[in-house]
Deep mutational scan, measured.
Amino acid sequence: MDALKSAGRALIRSPSLAKQSWGGGGRHRKLPENWTDTRETLLEGMLFSLKYLGMTLVEQPKGEELSAAAIKRIVATAKASGKKLQKVTLKVSPRGIILTDNLTNQLIENVSIYRISYCTADKMHDKVFAYIAQSQHNQSLECHAFLCTKRKMAQAVTLTVAQAFKVAFEFWQVSKEEKEKRDKASQEGGDVLGARQDCTPPLKSLVATGNLLDLEETAKAPLSTVSANTTNMDEVPRPQALSGSSVVWELDDGLDEAFSRLAQSRTNPQVLDTGLTAQDMHYAQCLSPVDWDKPDSSGTEQDDLFSF
């Protein structure tokens, strides 16, 4: 819950932080000083300027060897085509990944977070970031790969997607708890209302004896509580940590079903599988986004697919 609360507080303090972009060759504004600060901008989305290598189908939802083989196929196909790589912007948030063309600003792909089953910074092609997700059109699994400016960037994108998945799962947990509370309150309110109706004398007997209905007592009954809980029953509950912020979080049926399955089948359902080692994760978390744009010590960066 700490990640969720800190993310909400950060967004309320400075929503404009989320509009910064990394990996864009110096076009961005001043960047936060450390990885923790940038992680807090996830709610509205972190932007990464990358190059799209392509996509291939895979048979399993996750796995280092599986993704490595898929990336190898994608890279080989991209090299064989001889075409310049498409420059894209990857927007990562707890909602998922939005992929747009840098030149036309046209939407290429919009992947809900619950469809993503794996992401990684490839070991062999260490400047490549990739994720595996279920197609929104059918049940097939797709591996999408992107060329980053350097290994640090690939690791940073991988960690960002993993963190977005974690925050999304926490949102789901909060929403589920809130819905259970509202359902319980609604049920209790309905029981109270039913009890009051059972003990209320029939209207005919009131008229016969000349008694008047006590409207004041009726007004004191917990009807307002019942209506408050039943009027918006169809509205999706939102985490309290975000009250007053500009973010509107809505959970669709697909996300609810997917996270429910994860909660039942996995020990740590909030953790998205990645190909990063503990050492890689520690190294990337210690980086400032400013470091992502620094040239690798191995030599001059080449803006070309064939540089790796």
Rank of each mutant, 00 (worst) to 15 (best):
D296G: 09
G194N: 09
L141I: 15
S288P: 15
T56N: 01
C119T: 05
G63T: 01
V157F: 03
I108E: 03
G244E: 08
N229S: 12
S49P: 09
A156W: 14
L11G: 15
G24I: 10
N211V: 04
D280I: 13
A70I: 02
P15E: 11
Q264P: 02
G96P: 02
A130E: 00
H144V: 10
A258G: 02
L212I: 09
G25I: 12
A221R: 02
S246M: 06
S117V: 15
L212S: 11
A68D: 01
L255K: 03
F169K: 02
Y283I: 08
P201Q: 15
L4K: 07
N102W: 08
A154G: 00
V290T: 05
K30R: 15
V290Y: 11
S6N: 13
M153L: 15
K127R: 00
V192S: 05
D304W: 05
T120D: 03
V226H: 08
D234Q: 03
A263I: 06
S227C: 11
G190A: 14
L159I: 13
N105V: 09
Q302I: 10
S112K: 01
F306Y: 08
D183P: 14
C148W: 00
K123P: 14
D296H: 10
K83R: 10
V88D: 01
V174R: 05
A145C: 00
S224K: 10
G210N: 06
D293G: 08
K72F: 08
L66I: 09
D198F: 11
E142A: 14
F306T: 01
A241R: 09
K176Q: 15
V167C: 11
T41H: 10
K83M: 11
A68I: 02
C286L: 10
S93E: 07
Q279V: 06
Y118T: 03
L287N: 01
A130R: 00
V92H: 00
S243Q: 07
T56H: 01
G254F: 07
K294W: 09
F165Y: 07
A195I: 03
M281N: 07
S246C: 12
P61E: 14
A18S: 14
R182C: 13
Y283V: 12
L43S: 14
D122V: 00
S265Q: 06
L57Q: 13
W249F: 12
A221N: 12
T231P: 13
R27G: 12
V88K: 00
L262Y: 02
T274Q: 02
D214H: 09
C143L: 08
P32R: 15
H125C: 00
D273T: 07
L255N: 04
R115Y: 07
T231Y: 07
A164N: 07
E142N: 10
D126A: 00
K181S: 13
S297N: 13
A195W: 02
N268L: 03
E177T: 06
D183M: 09
C286P: 11
K184H: 08
R29E: 07
L66N: 10
D296Y: 06
L262E: 04
F165E: 02
M55I: 08
A185P: 15
P239V: 04
E178P: 09
G82A: 13
W249A: 09
T218K: 13
K51F: 01
G26D: 12
L47Q: 08
D273W: 03
L4Q: 03
L47E: 14
G189I: 01
A133R: 09
R39S: 06
K166P: 03
K84E: 05
P61I: 14
R115P: 00
E44H: 10
S297I: 06
E180Q: 15
K5M: 11
Y114K: 01
P201R: 05
F306D: 01
V167F: 15
L50Y: 01
F165K: 02
G275L: 02
N211I: 05
P295A: 15
K204V: 05
Y118F: 08
L242P: 12
D2T: 03
K87H: 13
S81Y: 04
E59V: 13
L305T: 11
D304F: 07
A70N: 12
V157P: 00
W249N: 04
T209L: 05
F129Q: 00
R39N: 03
K150W: 11
L213N: 09
G26T: 12
G23L: 06
A241V: 10
V92G: 00
S93I: 13
A78Y: 12
Q187I: 02
P289N: 05
T230V: 06
W22H: 09
T38G: 13
E142D: 09
S112F: 01
S21I: 01
Q139K: 14
A70T: 02
L53F: 01
L57E: 08
Q20F: 12
E59I: 14
L85N: 01
D253M: 04
A7K: 12
W22R: 05
P269Y: 02
F171K: 10
K79A: 01
T149A: 10
E216W: 02
N229L: 06
P289F: 09
T41P: 11
